[in-house]
């Protein structure tokens, strides 16, 4: 394999292909130190793989390490991070009396900082209902049950702005989703989805993000597919993307019939993929391309 890589690199260099510069960076050795309103914060973007992954990899890396210099630096200053606009929109929405009887998020939950820590431990199983809950599931429950509103679109602006705001409250917290106890069956289901080769191209998540991370599909630098940085501002889409929205895109690109956001399959997959990042920092809102 290594011999092959060297050969490939040599071939690229010999023929002056644009990918030579990119191919050397797998993943980039760099530190994510962010200038924010409350000073600087250094995030954990690489660490020892969690125990359940140690048979397949030693080190886990945030997708940040696989992006180009200018994309990486955009996330190193909140002033440059385009996702912060969406966090601000989320804050306005949080404080607005939007409920049927004038309820607001702030009315029950006070400031958004009351959500600190939630992003690091979700998806998680709700003790009362036994259901697997993403942040979107919690938001949906409030919107439809407590505020008496029509459900927000799962990947619509209101949902994602709120998700961005809530995620930001956990920036720097270490991802630590539970995979045992009541979470175990969901986690197993998610693992099964992760390793299933879907679609006419017969590709699984693992095909790209485990077996070939660090390599290139055309100009796409394959990361480990970590979701600790989600929701993310995706330059390609000029907008905020949730983890499950990215799952839709990936599965679609295997020429498969995708699952829908909030389907049992993608919720389980979100838990499983999150668990592959146990030990990395929540990035709040990241920047990718």
């Amino acid at each position: 394999m290594q011999k092959q890589m060297i050969k490939t690199l040599a071939a690229s260099a010999a023929f002056g292909l644009a990918l030579t510069g990119m191919a050397m960076s797998t993943p980039v050795d760099d530190k994510l130190v962010i200038e924010g309103e409350e000073g600087t914060i250094e995030l954990v973007t690489s660490t020892k793989a969690p125990e359940h992954l140690q048979e397949v990899m030693d080190t886990i890396y945030s997708g940040w390490h696989y992006r180009e210099d200018d994309t990486r630096s955009m996330q190193m200053d909140d002033f440059d991070n385009p996702a912060m606009v969406f966090v601000d929109r989320g804050r306005d929405l949080w404080n607005a009396a939007i409920g049927k009887n004038g309820e607001s998020c702030a009315g029950c939950h006070n400031g958004p900082e009351s959500m600190k820590g939630l992003r690091a431990v979700t998806p998680r199983v709700d003790a009362k209902t036994g259901k697997l809950m993403t942040i979107e599931n919690y938001v949906d429950a409030c919107v439809t049950e407590r505020m008496g509103l029509e459900a927000w679109g799962w990947t619509g602006d209101k949902m994602k702005d709120t998700l961005a705001l809530i995620s930001m409250q956990s920036r720097g917290e270490i991802v630590n989703v539970a995979i045992d106890g009541p979470a175990a069956p969901f986690w197993e289901k998610g693992k099964e989805v992760y390793y299933t080769r879907y679609g006419q191209l017969e590709m699984s998540c693992a095909s790209c993000h485990e077996e070939n991370q660090g390599l290139f599909i055309r100009s796409d630098h394959l990361s480990q597919g970590q979701i600790n940085g989600f929701p993310t501002y995706r330059l390609k889409d000029a907008g905020i993307l949730s983890a499950q929205q990215r799952f839709v895109g990936c599965v679609r690109d295997t020429r498969a019939e995708t699952f829908k956001p909030n389907s049992d399959e993608f919720k389980a997959l979100e838990l499983y993929v999150a668990s592959r990042g146990n030990g990395l920092s929540v990035e709040g809102v990241s920047v990718r391309h």
């Binding site: 092959q4 890589m5 050969k7 490939t8 690199l9 071939a11 690229s12 010999a14 023929f15 002056g16 292909l17 644009a18 990918l19 191919a23 070939n212 390599l215 290139f216 599909i217 055309r218 100009s219 796409d220």
Partner: peptide, 16 residues
């Protein structure tokens, strides 16, 4: 990579 086609940009390196 197909070195014989140097004008084709962004050739990937998953396969040989």
């Amino acid at each position: 990579v197909i070195g014989a086609l140097p004008d084709v940009p962004f050739q990937g390196n998953i396969g040989p």
